[in-house]
Write a protein that binds this DNA or RNA. Structure first.
Lengths: 390, 390
DNA sequence: CTGTTAGCGCATTCAG
DNA sequence: CTGAATGCGCTAACAG
């Protein structure tokens, strides 16, 4: 194992000494990091086995072809005689060659990597979304750089710069409106963008969002059916389109149903769900709709803390069909988004842009209200052997 | 935006025409992707605003210094007169210059990026862990490439290659033992590695893991106190150290307590938690310990499906203090790991290796048993205004 | 089809 | 302290 001397990796010597010789660099240690904590950086070589320093030149030599030919064989571009390709591939395998993406990107101006910028990976909604995006991207041969902004616009801005520095081919982002400037910068730098879940109107960026209008109307009707006359709504922040739109949709639906409403303004965080529910309970509502998953959790907890059984004592509709909710009993009525389609569509949209087609299309995928199936005790239902129940 | 002609980005022309002129490339379109779906790739220029193509040369020109000087000013390496540096930085800002990480890495052999390879981002345990790692790395100026292997060794292998291709400076990984070969390859390529949560013995890779021995012993004692005589245990897969060790620890603890045991073998997935609980119930256990969060969820669901109230009718201890569990009432006794320290320590360990120090140290952080606080109804507890309750 | 050649943008020598 | 020159590993034009 990495015992063995501390050696500065001079060029590469993949075991079969070749390559021009190097003057030994003056300094023995480089700095790791510019204005960050600096520490020494040295390569620790373990005997011969430093295979990753193998270059395409080594492969070419091994296969007895020129560098260019090796490149074509490995990348699959350009025309190559089948036997030649095989020879090169064999050589590459023998040498355990893995191409240097940096070098390739530098030349080709493509990194085959996309960025995914989300508010918080700890939010199950975004974790699931990230998973789907990553999966879709992968199936297109793209790597994903996942950046979780911790619900902080500043951090989102920092990450935007990181992604720019990495020259990702494109970025999928669930934005705050307060991140508008950062995103404009990205846009100005020519990076293809796609908005996911949320959007910022007027930026001309294509988006994939949920259409919650009908689902919210259904939810309101459901609450009314449950006997609600005064429906409380825990809204998202006005910095997000989802916050604004869902609230408007709720107002419209309530007006249509002729019920009274009470609004509590939240921020898509669990804590604001608690506060919102507390406030609504104090205002004497007899039905509640929470407009995102984390606030649903908060509202739920607060309810119980107040001795009110949500969905039993108090008609209640939550948001997003995230895994945790499956633990609840009786299960909650939920507004469900089609996460899977959303993620996949976002990747496709980005791909379209990478293909040179610009658009500012907005794809709206319908959400729906999901009611508790058997109401009480959904027991004895068979376990489906392979699908993760979520 | 992005209307405007389709132009092949010939070199760069950041608005202030300079730079050698180029022969217009023969083909108008490049291929995006080698053996993947191929599609055309073109740069869509929007007027002048293609600022990201600004290079350090442009900055140098703008500041009236040479390329090398600009580089030193921007990277902070080498010596530079303060006024010169200021001039360069100002120019960079004016041009909205963002350095090309690819180019820098190619030269410096450092990407300032680390890989994080986890089994599944949808698992709240790993989502939280990823969040911590990402945060720690960020504070050290490192970007994280997050790869979620979907509990699939093949996929883990693919990602290992991706990370190698990207020449990440190091990798933090929660491995399967079946991924041993992939990891050996990584190791052989000289990539610094750190194991997190799980480890693979004998590879000489430093690791950060939980020490669950005492917590598991406490859990067994707790179950016995609750009246259990025949304790069921839902174990993780033998492909993971956590699966093996926890089982051994459980056996030892049970032997010490003199209770009977029943083992159900699972795979750290929710579904196996259900099956495991089903099997254990059939075997007449009167107390259950599940050895990871997802299986805890599964076991919990199965219990209820069988009409048994976990932690009420049946003494039950779950694993990991993940957010969903806070929704349960009465709350579950849980074995809690110190996620935060684990993630931070892993990053520090990787940093140490990047600094040239090799070690195969194993850091074990103690887990602990957390019992329900007020048992019944933890109501009316004050809301702490800023901490996300998890 | 294959070999040759010229840089991608930057960090890092070496002279001055 | 600064400018000039070199090449990281690879892709893509070009010529045979």
């Amino acid at each position: 194992m990495g015992r063995g001397g501390v050696v500065w990796a001079s060029s590469h010597d993949s075991g079969r000494g070749n390559r021009r010789r190097w003057k030994v660099p003056r300094a023995e240690a480089e700095w790791y990091g510019p204005h960050w904590k600096r520490f020494q950086w040295r390569f620790v070589r373990s005997g011969e086995g430093h295979m990753s320093r193998t270059t395409i030149k080594d492969v070419a030599a091994e296969a007895g072809v020129s560098l260019g030919t090796a490149s074509r064989a490995l990348s699959g571009n350009g025309s190559i005689a089948a036997p030649t390709r095989e020879r090169v591939l064999a050589a590459a395998r023998r040498l355990n060659f893995v191409p240097n993406a940096q070098a390739g990107s530098l030349r080709s101006e493509r990194t085959r990597t996309i960025g995914l910028l989300i508010p918080d990976i700890r939010n199950p909604f975004f974790a699931e979304l990230a998973h789907v995006v990553e999966r879709s991207a992968r199936s297109e041969g793209l790597s994903v750089m996942l950046c979780s902004a911790d619900e902080d616009p500043q951090q989102m801005h920092d990450y935007a710069t990181v992604l720019r520095r990495q020259r990702v081919d494109g970025i999928i982002v669930a934005p705050f409106s307060t991140a508008r400037d950062s995103l404009r910068e990205l846009q100005g730098s020519g990076t293809p963008l796609v908005f996911l879940d949320r959007t910022i109107p007027g930026m001309g960026v294509p988006a994939v969002v949920s259409d919650t209008r009908d689902a919210i109307a259904d939810a309101v009707r459901y609450l009314v059916d449950q006997g609600a006359h005064r429906i409380g709504y825990i809204s998202g922040p006005s910095e997000t389109t989802t916050g604004v739109e869902r609230l408007a949709e709720f107002r419209a639906a309530a007006a249509a149903s002729g019920v009274d409403i009470e609004i509590a303004h939240g921020d898509f965080q669990e804590h604001s769900g608690r506060l919102g529910m507390r406030s609504l309970l104090a205002r004497g509502v007899d039905g509640v709709l929470a407009s995102d998953s984390l606030m649903t959790i908060g509202a739920f907890k607060e309810c119980r803390a107040a001795g009110v059984k949500p969905a039993q004592d108090l008609p209640f509709v939550g948001f997003d069909d995230i895994a945790p909710f499956a633990l609840l009993q009786p299960s909650l009525p939920l507004i469900c988004q089609d996460l899977h389609s959303m993620g996949a569509a976002a990747v496709q949209m980005l791909l379209t842009q990478l293909g040179g087609v610009t658009s500012s299309q907005e794809l709206r995928l319908e959400a729906h209200l999901k009611l508790p199936s058997g109401s009480e005790a959904d027991s004895a239902q068979p376990i489906d052997p392979h699908h993760h129940e979520s």
